Amino acid sequence: MLVSEIDVVSPLTLNECLAILSNEETNTRIIAGGTDAVVRMKDGKWLPEKWININGLTELRYIIERDGQIHIGPLTTHSDIIHSSLLQKKADVLVEASREVGAIQMQNIGTIGGNIGTASPAGDTIPALYVLNAVLELRSLTNTRLVPIEEFFIGPGKTVLKQNEMITNIIIQPQSENEIGIFQKLGPRKAQSISIVNVAISLLMGEGHQVVKGKIAFGSVGPTIIRAKKCESIMTLGPLTDELIQNIAKIAWKEVMPITDVRATAKYRRDMASALLERGLYRLMRRWENK
């Protein structure tokens, strides 16, 4: 397909965009930052009849705290997230994940809504959103529904999003004073490539090294993001000692479900998932001691 053959429409308002999406006779696809679009078109995977360019819908670019929750617009860029004082204080794991999304140029252009909508198991912000209990607002011209992020993805590149819907809000639960988070990524080149394995960890701490509640989400080790529920349950059994951390890491090796592809073997991904989790837990303990 030649660039001259691509049909692009740029709505001026959200309602105009939803009206375009409601036309079931036309195969459409939304584009914002477009960091994935050219690659997918070259691969012959994204070839809609019409692209809907929503980059000008500034009403969808925001980070606000309201009623005890943090609301993030889908057009919020990774750079917006990185420089948000609110997210630095109350969603540090998401800030760390956004820092790992490509080079600075990509962080300036790429949006969190696009990272979610692409539905890649390797998407860097998605594990962070899992441990922040994110809920997605999906809107059509006639309906609005809220979908927990763990119910949004149904496979690589596949979601429950309907043809006439778009993501209009991402709602996360702010971390408390006793909650700490971290994002770890393994890639061929730091912050420049698709993750071979990534992991987001969020811990609600009690006295000493006691974990009251822990959340762990792995990327690139399954068809969708994997919540390491067994690891999470073991974390609360006692203080997070060296022995317990190492046992949790061993369990993670069995809990992930990676495949072998051109970037890594399944065994290597299992080994690295275990190692990244162990390293992340040690780093979090050091942060907690210094807090």
Results as ranks from 00 to 15, higher is better:
Val135Phe: 06
Ile109Glu: 02
Ile6Met: 15
Val147Gly: 08
Ala97Met: 04
Met166Ala: 04
Thr13Cys: 08
Val256Gly: 09
Arg279Tyr: 03
Asn115Asp: 08
Gln184Gly: 12
Leu141His: 06
Thr76Trp: 07
His78Phe: 10
Val131Phe: 06
Met285Ser: 02
Thr13Ile: 07
Gly238Glu: 15
Ile31Val: 15
Ile112Ser: 01
Leu57Phe: 08
Thr265Asn: 12
Phe218Gly: 02
Gly157His: 03
Arg283Ser: 11
Thr28Asp: 03
Leu18Glu: 11
Asp67Cys: 09
Lys190Trp: 08
Glu5Thr: 14
Gln69Glu: 15
Asp43Lys: 14
Thr236Gly: 03
Glu177Tyr: 14
Ile52Cys: 02
Ala119Lys: 04
Leu186Ser: 07
Leu237Cys: 05
Gly102Glu: 06
Ile234Ala: 10
Ala103Leu: 11
Ile225Asp: 04
Ala191Cys: 11
Leu138Lys: 05
Thr118Gln: 09
Ser22Val: 03
His78Trp: 04
Val199Cys: 13
His71Ala: 03
Ala266Ile: 10
Ile72His: 07
Glu5Asn: 14
Val147Cys: 12
Gly56Leu: 13
Gly110Tyr: 01
Ile104Cys: 06
Met257Ile: 11
Gly222Ser: 09
Ser98Val: 02
Asp271Pro: 03
Tyr268Asp: 08
Ile170Lys: 07
Ala264Lys: 08
Ile216Trp: 00
Ile72Trp: 09
Lys162Ile: 00
His78Leu: 05
Ile167Ala: 02
Ser10Phe: 10
Val160Phe: 06
Ser4Ala: 13
Ser10Asn: 09
Arg61Ala: 15
Gly222Tyr: 03
Asn27Leu: 15
Leu141Arg: 07
Lys291Arg: 15
Arg287Ala: 10
Leu136Pro: 10
Phe218Val: 01
Ala134Leu: 06
Glu137Leu: 10
Met205Ser: 12
Gly113Asn: 04
Leu87Gly: 01
Gly114Asn: 07
Arg286Ser: 08
Gln105Met: 08
Gln69Gly: 01
Ser202Glu: 07
Thr224Met: 09
Leu86His: 00
Arg279Ile: 00
Gly219Thr: 09
Asn15His: 12
Gly208Ser: 08
Glu232Pro: 05
Thr118Cys: 00
Leu276Met: 13
Tyr282Asp: 03
Glu207Lys: 15
Gln173Asn: 10
Leu237Met: 11
Lys185Leu: 14
Asn164Ala: 07
Leu136Ser: 10
Ile81Ala: 05
Ile116Met: 04
Leu75Trp: 09
Ala273Asp: 09
Arg263Ala: 06
Ala217Thr: 02
Arg286Asp: 13
Leu129Thr: 02
Glu100Asn: 12
Glu151Leu: 10
Ile172Pro: 02
Ser220Asn: 02
Gly110Leu: 01
His209Val: 00
Glu5Phe: 04
Asp261Val: 03
Pro148Cys: 08
Thr265Ile: 08
Ala264Asp: 08
Thr77Tyr: 09
Lys250Tyr: 01
Lys45Gly: 00
Val8Glu: 12
Glu179Lys: 13
Arg40His: 12
Ile82His: 02
Lys185Gln: 10
Pro188Lys: 11
Leu18Tyr: 08
